[in-house]
Nucleic acid binder design. Sequence first.
DNA 1: ACGAACCGTCAAGAGATCGTCAAAACTTCC
DNA 2: GGAAGTTTTGACGATCTCTTGACGGTTCGT
Lengths: 226, 226
Amino acid sequence: MAVVLLIEDDQPIREGLERALTRRGHVVMQAEDGLGGLRSAVDELPDVVVLDLGLPDIDGRDLLRMLRAVSEVAVIISTAQDGDQAAVECLDAGADDYLVKPYSAEQLDARVRAVLRRGRTQSPDAVVMVGELVIEPRPHRVTLRGEEVALTRKEFELLSYLARHAGAVVSKRELLTEVWDQPFGGGERTVDVHLSWLRSKLGESASDPVYLHTVRGVGVRLSPPG
Amino acid sequence: MAVVLLIEDDQPIREGLERALTRRGHVVMQAEDGLGGLRSAVDELPDVVVLDLGLPDIDGRDLLRMLRAVSEVAVIISTAQDGDQAAVECLDAGADDYLVKPYSAEQLDARVRAVLRRGRTQSPDAVVMVGELVIEPRPHRVTLRGEEVALTRKEFELLSYLARHAGAVVSKRELLTEVWDQPFGGGERTVDVHLSWLRSKLGESASDPVYLHTVRGVGVRLSPPG
DNA sequence: ACGAACCGTCAAGAGATCGTCAAAACTTCC
DNA sequence: GGAAGTTTTGACGATCTCTTGACGGTTCGT
């Protein structure tokens, strides 16, 4: 259970999500524009903010930056169209996850839980498990279904980062800055190549993904199969 | 009083121990498989874990390693048969104590108290065992499969440091600062050369490692074979 | 349907790391 | 002071790893 703030200008959507999340045990607050949302975020200190892009009064990216400036709250972006450039920029600007409308309340609930779980377990040496994939940072070892998978350093760092953000879509820009320490453009093929190697070592292919899904126009997502 | 996590797949045993320990003033949490146990250990931060070998989902030794990787929690091994080889290996891998079933709740309580009293202080004079490799700081002696291995001082210090961090990858930089007292760069070949000596004296080679594994781009790891 | 953007993979070369040798520098102990 | 043993350092080759550009297939917008 968590305290969730919905910032969404479409009233039917907002109230539908509100009911669904409340039924799943969350405390839900609502705001119909960016200004009100910002005020609520400051006053009520929610655990998660679900932020709709395309608000009437403020650009979503600006509001995200303001939220980031005033609190550590987790932010899930909600956007109308897939492959939205603004959504990618939001992920790069520190959003925790992202959903494309229309999405079910169940999906949203899953993301909320994932974001919260992640926030509590953020130790650099912690073992990360995604399905049958186990990443142990200290021995620098990865096992899939109990079998050890031999990875190079970059591959390991890449997989670790994705696993710590399991379930979330991660943009290549974010990977370049976080894993490659290159806050500037260029070399996006590098990420692709490493992802390709990872896939082959995990025994899957881009056309038939199991753990490592590419979300065209947005980034990649590591999530358990099924 | 302590927070105790029971990882045990047999429900009657688990609940019996739970009642008995609760009556003696402990806070008790339960997990019926390895995965759930690991989650609880991370989320609830118990003081002691009582770990049953022979769980349905994960090998006990592997789980112990994972527990060790995520926290400093004390671990008491619970095994079905005396003289169990796996139990011995667990002690080598850093378990704090072990009990053979069937045991009374009173015995378990005593072990829990003893483990907590002992604290998690690793004295520099403690004998360290990694697989069949035994390092005794006091007489300054190392034996492998009972055979004494003649090491020079630096070789011994290097091996000791690696053994105290058995199972974890240690970077050369770390070795330089901790074993060589040189917090600055330079001389990385020194470490390599000593590792080379060590390997040859332990009767293994870099291309076919048994205890001493190099993780390219990261460091080295001392871990039991198998 | 066409072009643009995106993505996956290949191949090749640049770059970094590691293991070992041998010689120099340093200790220790007679 | 010298000899034996120990440690450090530089050099070098053999990998292993990373990056980059090219190319073809796919998706998406117009």
